[in-house]
């Protein structure tokens, strides 16, 4: 059997199991609608204009947050990675800020920036900064001194060293950080929409579906779309990374 076939077999088995649990009355169908019902709703939603607007709102917030995180974290990582003194000095601050769970800041952010899209963007940016920052610091700190020496002895200027040696070396590591941040960012955007409410967004759609009658089929359909988005983003970035950095077998520990 080819791997793709096995993928599909696994997926089908999961759906059949889900369908069976729901149909055989092991749980109430209102609580856990069968897979077929949820999938039908999912396809229905994909043609639904107001739901698509929700999806766009979430993706837009995610893209802005990820962009902000990159703009903040890459230069900071470059600075902290190449200046050990600064790294030591900022370490306590970073170690104090990083472990604060982004959701703990929800009440604060809502007070300060209100319920608009700014709040979810702010929180997703906060969560997405760390993996990029850590990988960037690691990459710029790890640059082989021999490379730098070689470049210097050839009379290359500092700016040129940065552009021709440091950045290409760091790129695969930074990219790994971006990939992790992309996944985290989407999860935070949808979570904040769901927990705090928003004008629009997948999380908001799910929140609405839970209120009142508690339409679990819609909740699950929305969740599937969110998961699918996250999966596709991750797969896409992974493939992109493999294409871009074929020369580099990066396997940085996915740590944060």
């Amino acid at each position: 059997m080819r791997p793709v076939v096995r993928n599909l077999v696994g997926l089908a088995a999961f759906l059949v199991l889900w369908e069976g649990v729901a149909r055989l009355g092991l749980v109430r169908q209102e609580d856990l609608p069968p897979a077929s019902v949820v999938l039908e709703q999912t396809f229905g939603l994909l043609g639904n204009e107001s739901f698509l607007r929700d999806v766009i709102a979430s993706v837009l917030a995610w893209a802005i947050a990820l962009g902000l995180a990159i703009v903040i974290a890459v230069p900071s990582g470059l600075l902290l990675g190449s200046l050990p003194g600064l790294r030591v000095a900022t370490r306590a601050v970073v170690e104090f800020l990083r472990p604060i769970p982004s959701v703990a800041l929800i009440p604060l952010v809502i007070l300060v920036v209100g319920g608009g899209p700014e709040s979810k963007i702010a929180l997703a940016t906060y969560a997405a900064v760390w993996p990029i920052l850590y990988n960037a610091i690691y990459a710029f700190d790890e640059i082989d001194p021999l490379l730098i020496d070689t470049a210097r002895s050839c009379g290359v200027s500092r700016a040129r060293i940065l552009a021709s040696v440091a950045l290409p070396h760091a790129a695969p590591f930074v990219f790994t950080g971006i990939r992790m941040s992309a996944a985290i960012g989407l999860i935070v955007v949808v979570s904040v929409e769901f927990i705090a409410g928003a004008a629009s967004g997948i999380g908001q759609f799910i929140l609405e579906a839970t209120s009142g009658a508690g339409r679990m089929d819609l909740v699950l359909a929305g969740t599937i779309v969110a998961g699918l988005l996250g999966y596709l983003i991750n797969e896409g970035l992974e493939r992109l990374g493999r294409r871009m950095f074929r020369w580099h077998t990066v396997s940085t520990a996915e740590a944060m």
């Binding site: 979570s191 927990i195 999380g203 799910i206 909740v219 699950l220 969740t223 969110a226 988005l229 991750n234």
Partner: peptide
């Protein structure tokens, strides 16, 4: 399947 599960924002499953 697991990669997909990993990408799901877990809070949205709380209602279920």
């Amino acid at each position: 399947l697991f990669a997909f599960m990993r990408a799901i924002p877990p809070p949205t499953l709380i209602p279920v």
